[in-house]
Amino acid sequence: MNQSTLIRNNVNVTGKGTKAMIFAHGFGCDQNMWRLVAPAFEENFRVILFDYVGSGKSDYSAYSSTKYQDLHGYAQDVLDICDTLDIKEAIFVGHSVGSIIGMLASIQEPSRFERLVMLGPSPCFLNDPPLYKGGFEKEDLEGLIGMMEMNYIGWANYLSQVIMKNPERPELFQELEESFCSTDPTVAREFATATFFSDHRNDLQNVTVPSLILQCSDDAIAPIEVGEYMHSVLTESAYALMEATGHCPHLSHPEETIRLISEYLKSVADQDSSNG
């Protein structure tokens, strides 16, 4: 493992601390999502930000439909980054699918992680009646992918052909670049499938790293029942229901997000010092 991982995943390391704090973004965007939250931890932590292959400013040529057909490929990238930066006992903060990716990485190499902080996690988006309510029927998810297609996946291939035929109009390409965080239609479709059609409920019992679940109120993507379900199955998990609504508390309610994470880390640090 070497420098190439850092370029592949557009890894950015900041902060004055020694303890690593890794921030993993969710589906559809990139590490910019953390810009209201991550700086608050730079004083005390070594803050690590990255993009998944196929997102943000990652190396798109490293994308492989086979490797990234499910979340394990993404989890491997997290472990590659840990290996390259020689990270042990990190605080891993993941948003949505990012928290599941971190969780899978922690099952594979628990020593890399000390705590998992999960913002709006969901181990399975599909309903599995009668016992599990993920919040989505298959048609809902197909509707979502249909909407993504209408917005760009369906057109992007076509558009890129138009753009290639119009080299005298580079602004077309610029517009397409800026229109969405991730513009590669193949990657977007496959990441959407890997994210929304995966079922990692059986992996929850294999998690040994303690975790904090931050559940948003009124989240259409990860409903409260899902957060409660995760809390009930994950050993050593703490659970906080946020005032924040929606699915992106790190953008909509950065202060509350920072406060809850800080309080959790402080409480476990106090516990650790009183224990030993």
Binding site: G28, C29, L144, M148, N151, D219, A220, I221, G246, C248
Partner: peptide, 13 residues
Amino acid sequence: HASQTFYQLYFFP
């Protein structure tokens, strides 16, 4: 329902 999800994934960020 699909739009609620899309809104959270794309519009809001």
